[in-house]
Design a protein around this nucleic acid. Structure first.
Lengths: 217, 217
DNA sequence: CGATTACTTTGATCCAGATCAACAAGGGGC
DNA sequence: GCCCCTTGTTGATCTGGATCAAAGTAATCG
């Protein structure tokens, strides 16, 4: 992959800044280095739905199609490692490994998207919130190499509004359900964003998923 | 692709029959020849959400992972063209074209899944129904090489319940909204399943999408 | 054919979550 | 510190779709 180094460069975005708008041409593909980006869709009347979260190491842009179908926005301060499209595409057509790796990543994303469809289509507001917190918790624990079963604490990277956009809810409902989970001892809040999970099993029980079902990314 | 012929065979399913259950080992990958299959997820308490529809030429199964994460069911009578997994995987690692083609198909499916997330998360029942009918209409028109703008008729391949599972609604709501669209002259029903669209634009206006936005598969 | 079973429509009622409306709590910047 | 501004909470009310309940229609089978 040494050739990649020759065509890569970095871009930085502040929290809230747009990376690309739906329908725009994206003349690069990129991988998230630090921070979080959100893929969202917006209807004419302003209703919006987040359709994906990009975390460090996630990939942005699809080889072979230069037009994005979703808005991409920096949720937190964001650094992207970008590759100019043309040389990148030449590279992947030359090296089968890259293409296979990309396929695998894409299939994982597809699985995640489909699992999220269950969340959006069938879960209650409380289950949605619990699911989202569980996903973030799982990721954090992976990052810090702790087992999520042990109680631990972390920071929610999303505003209440962003959570609402992700979950197909309103921000008021998000706030209320977080309060309810706190009242019921499922989670503890050290501050608005700082969450402590006393018992991960209890949280999982609130997601509505069976025992150890996988969760979307 | 001549080598593929050596390892392929056919399977038939009757409407309603399961193809695989979530968590089962899938020792083949396949492509739909005729009929329709549904990918669904089910919660412990029986709530189900359809997460994908497989139509003729769509692909089932992912190279590299033998366990399916979704139930697959025949919605109508179904014929699959199957490839035994091992030789198929050997083939795609040998021929970069196949792998690239698969990547492209998967990216398309991912886009579709994400567009469906907007439908599930933010659309009203009426918009959901209109969206579904528009999608099916579009497909049918593609199949018959007619432009969907011209009024035309076709058959809904799904029961009201299957539509409800796809749209995150109950079957009663589906029935009511179809009746409402009929009452308002957006669609005409020749029978339960036979739909006639007098004016495609009118239908599109009911989906909530802006003008010519792409629709999920 | 009539009967049984599956699918669909329609009605009445209920409730989870949306909407409308205040208000609290940070958190910079000056 | 104080003010402004963004973010979050909480309350009151409303409503779209769920739920519960009956019929109506169509396909299937003996």
């Amino acid at each position: 992959m040494l050739e990649l180094d020759k065509i890569k460069y970095y871009r930085n975005y502040e929290a809230g800044q747009p990376v690309v708008w739906s329908g725009d041409q994206l003349d690069f593909v990129a991988s998230v280095v630090t921070g979080i980006a959100a893929l969202t869709q917006t209807m004419e009347d302003g209703r919006t739905q987040m359709v994906g979260l990009l975390l460090p190491s996630d990939f942005l842009g699809r080889p072979g199609r230069e037009i994005t179908s979703f808005d991409v926005t920096a949720v937190s301060d964001l650094t992207l490692c970008c590759f100019r499209r043309k040389p990148f595409e030449k590279l992947i057509s030359a090296t089968p490994n890259v293409s296979q790796r990309l396929l695998e990543m894409t299939l994982d994303e597809l699985d995640s998207a489909r699992e999220w469809m269950l969340v959006l289509g069938r879960k209650t507001a409380r289950e949605k919130i619990a699911s989202l917190i569980a996903i973030i918790a799982r990721r954090e624990s992976k990052l810090h190499l702790t087992r999520p079963e042990d109680g631990f604490r972390f920071e929610l990277p999303l505003t209440r509004e962003a959570m609402a956009d992700y979950l197909g809810l309103t921000l008021e409902t998000v706030s209320r359900q977080i309060s309810a989970l706190k009242r019921d001892g499922v989670i503890e809040l050290l501050s608005n964003r700082q969450v402590h999970i006393p018992d991960f099993r209890t949280l999982l029980a609130e997601t509505g998923d069976d025992a150890d079902g996988g969760m979307p990314a």
